[in-house]
Design a protein around this nucleic acid. Sequence first.
DNA 1: CCAATGATTTTGAATAGTCAAAATTATTTC
DNA 2: GAAATAATTTTGACTATTCAAAATCATTGG
Lengths: 220, 220
Amino acid sequence: MPSATVENYVKEILALSMEKGKAQVGMGEIARGLGVAPGTATSMTKTLEREKLVQYKSHKGVTLTAKGRKLGMGMLRRHRILETFLVETLGLDWTEIHGEAEELEHALSEKVLDRLDKFLGRPEFDPHGDPIPTKDGKIAQSNMRNLLECRRQVASKVTLITDQGVEFLNFARRKGLVPGASVEVISRDLVSDAVELRIGKTKPFTIGSKAARKILVASS
Amino acid sequence: MPSATVENYVKEILALSMEKGKAQVGMGEIARGLGVAPGTATSMTKTLEREKLVQYKSHKGVTLTAKGRKLGMGMLRRHRILETFLVETLGLDWTEIHGEAEELEHALSEKVLDRLDKFLGRPEFDPHGDPIPTKDGKIAQSNMRNLLECRRQVASKVTLITDQGVEFLNFARRKGLVPGASVEVISRDLVSDAVELRIGKTKPFTIGSKAARKILVASS
DNA sequence: CCAATGATTTTGAATAGTCAAAATTATTTC
DNA sequence: GAAATAATTTTGACTATTCAAAATCATTGG
Ligand SMILES: [Mn+2]
Ligand SMILES: [Mn+2]
Ligand SMILES: [Mn+2]
Ligand SMILES: [Mn+2]
């Protein structure tokens, strides 16, 4: 069985390669993502290679093998099902579930995971809007745009908050920018770096472009 | 924070000292209980002492400190609440929950534990009948006798199955010897090593003394 | 093409936990 | 009170994971 450390590395590599849209991931990115020294990532990479979870090109980066991708998808599945459980069943706040799931994901057997999934009614998205991979490692590829790219003057549904830090999640909730909410981009101004929004029929408000990029909406 | 290993040792020491009714526990018992080499227990004991979780007398054994007892009780609480959740909520079988809880107990924050406890309705006993310690580490001291010691010709309630291996639990369930069941010892015979029982009003059957000792009933 | 800059890798060291086998200490039996 | 037996401790070794700092490699802007 892979150790918790191995599982974390593989999950991180998968997450990074997905958000970059590129399979190969560098040592520095991994190290930053996991909060370890660069040399640690290089050294751990050797272990992952020995386990045939990645393919490694020195000074270029790592790419997950089929086995690695499968493990990584499994970890995303665990993590997201757990987060859903923590919010839906136990009523934790969506700002505090990530850390909890980060630990629990390594202690859950396949069997318990499955029962949990069934108990929750086979959810498709976690509380942040991230899609939950199926048991065979497939992830629904959805069409999403962030608030800088989506159409203006048209209501869209918020689908995902990509920055899942406590700060940003609290901000997002305060503004009503939660998965499922209806949002309309009224205007965008590049010079003032401002994006004017309205949630449902409430009073419009303005956020910066950096924040706007972190909120994704469905783009039909 | 104590490592999972430290938590397992402390829990084992507490469990052993409780079942012996004696605070001091030897290296050999710990090693046997955790399935490690004797030298490993000795070495780990030094770590526990450094953390002020035990007091150690060379060649005599270890005794939990107040801090150690608190941690140990906390672990029993975690373990038993988790077992209860796995059976009550997820519907796992009582033969397969021990191993699952053994892993999960180290990954659960105090907060999630509390929510789980609340969600389950603050259960007092786990699926095997073991009492769940309260948050402040107190355990209800109940009066229990095994089927060799209890009164004959009188119905009692099964309260605890002490052998929690898969084999024995399956046997116990097949016979109806589960917590809550009403059982009457009809007769005991030392020579034939036999204990004749009846569950409720069903047909009597006979088990051996070794098995009889593993089933505890309430003794008013 | 090449020096500066940034990224990556290597080196040497540390910690936690574990084992097997040898050495030592306790206990029991005659 | 020994000798035999059992329990415990020590020794030396190994694996996994991590770090800091030094060495090396790669890219890029002139
Ligand atoms: Mn994790
Ligand atoms: Mn999430
Ligand atoms: Mn455990
Ligand atoms: Mn139990």
